[in-house]
């Protein structure tokens, strides 16, 4: 992939929001500080990737996986991230499973509807909720690719 240099930047608006949420209310973040943190974040991604890749290579694996990233965090002296990361990963995996589950449920529900229309009204409501959530997520996925 031939990427342009700006493709290696992270979206400034998102970075700024993360900084603002981390600092006390009303703290002014200079423009220079914002772009410096943004650059630092890109370098962090590369550093972490390279570290994690070393662990994958040591394990004679071609694909970089979650364990490699967690090991990299320890090596980089960001042990404090490991706990929160594990929690997020669990939530992420549940989420991914949920997506698949929702699609399957929907199919089942469709078949069932043809047999008995008015049973499982609650179940249907649940599915509707899930559909909405999925739509939201699809939108978000689109947002992920920007300039």
């Amino acid at each position: 992939m031939a990427e342009r240099p700006e493709d290696l930047n992270l979206p400034n608006a998102v970075i700024t929001r993360i900084i603002k949420e981390a600092l006390p209310d009303g703290v002014n973040i200079s423009k220079e500080a914002r772009s410096a943190i943004s650059r630092a974040a890109s370098v962090f991604v590369l550093y972490a990737t390279s570290c994690a890749n070393n662990f994958a290579m040591k394990g004679k694996r071609k694909t970089l996986n979650a364990t490699d990233v967690l090991s990299a965090m320890e090596e980089m002296e960001f042990q404090r991230f490991v706990g929160p990361l594990k929690e997020s990963l669990e939530a992420y995996r549940r989420d991914q499973k949920g997506k698949k589950g929702a699609v399957e449920l929907k199919k089942k529900d469709k078949d069932k509807k043809e047999d008995s229309e008015d049973t499982d009204k609650n179940r249907e409501d649940e599915n509707e909720d899930e559909d909405e959530r999925m739509e939201e997520e699809e939108q978000n996925d689109e947002e992920e690719v920007d300039n």
């Binding site: 970075i15 993360i18 900084i19 630092a40 974040a41 962090f44 965090m73 960001f78 991230f81």
Partner: peptide, 8 residues
């Protein structure tokens, strides 16, 4: 996620 934690 780690990058977010790092920025914070």
């Amino acid at each position: 996620k780690a990058t977010e934690l790092f920025v914070q």
